[in-house]
Design a protein around this nucleic acid. Sequence first.
DNA 1: TCGAACCTTGACGTTAACGTCAACGTCAGG
DNA 2: CCTGACGTTGACGTTAACGTCAAGGTTCGA
Lengths: 132, 132
Amino acid sequence: METRAKERTWTVGELADELGVTTRTLRFYEAEGLITPQRAGGNRVYGPRDRARMRLILRGRRFGMTVAECREIVDMYDGAESSELRQLTTLLARLDEIADGLRRRQADIRRTLSEVTDVAEQCRGRLAELRG
Amino acid sequence: METRAKERTWTVGELADELGVTTRTLRFYEAEGLITPQRAGGNRVYGPRDRARMRLILRGRRFGMTVAECREIVDMYDGAESSELRQLTTLLARLDEIADGLRRRQADIRRTLSEVTDVAEQCRGRLAELRG
DNA sequence: TCGAACCTTGACGTTAACGTCAACGTCAGG
DNA sequence: CCTGACGTTGACGTTAACGTCAAGGTTCGA
């Protein structure tokens, strides 16, 4: 099985544009250990895997995850194939914690959203009344 | 209708404890215009209304809203009783924008959660396998 | 009366997550 | 050959959201 199918690659600038971030962000995340692009004579070369990780990270950032939290999660995606029973156990415990945290945030967002739409409804009511 | 039913009040320290934040946070939010407690001879006196606003704000903070965004929203809760048609219209438009943003975050969180639970499931699978 | 436990304002420190700038290398086009 | 567009590292700047003092005022129980 040939694992070296010629995958598409990106330069920093290209990937930054595609993701809607700056090159500084990509270099920053690399320094923080969230991504590890290949190098072609000094220059960074990003593959689909790096791109996928970046999208996960950016998605997390949008709802308040810190860069450190993002790193922890993407690292876990890799560690899940581990074969050591002890590792898998602690990993699983942590994953459940994280899932709980996400569910809490989900509840928080849901409440806020329902309040905001309520206020919007009041607005529509007042407007209909005023125009009546 | 007596609007001055003696409502419960809090000092900074009390409210901070109850909300799980520091007094610095309360003073900071006040300086930023998110809450405006009464004063009793220099000392701040928080009422149920302040407490309620704080809970909304803190809930928003938990899923990544900035303090500025929180202020915008709590301000809208007040402005919704406005009687000026023009104001209500722009307010409503903004509310809809905000709701859209919240729904996007909701989708982001939902996807992340489902991925995390997927990985957890893989872990459980590997564990069951290892333990035979 | 005195210290402990509150409160006040003001000012400076800290951390995360980048932005910005300098100084340099490389490579294609005119 | 030279400019312009891209890349590199390193270092310092910036903003948000507080933390952490310092210096002082009040109040309350021993």
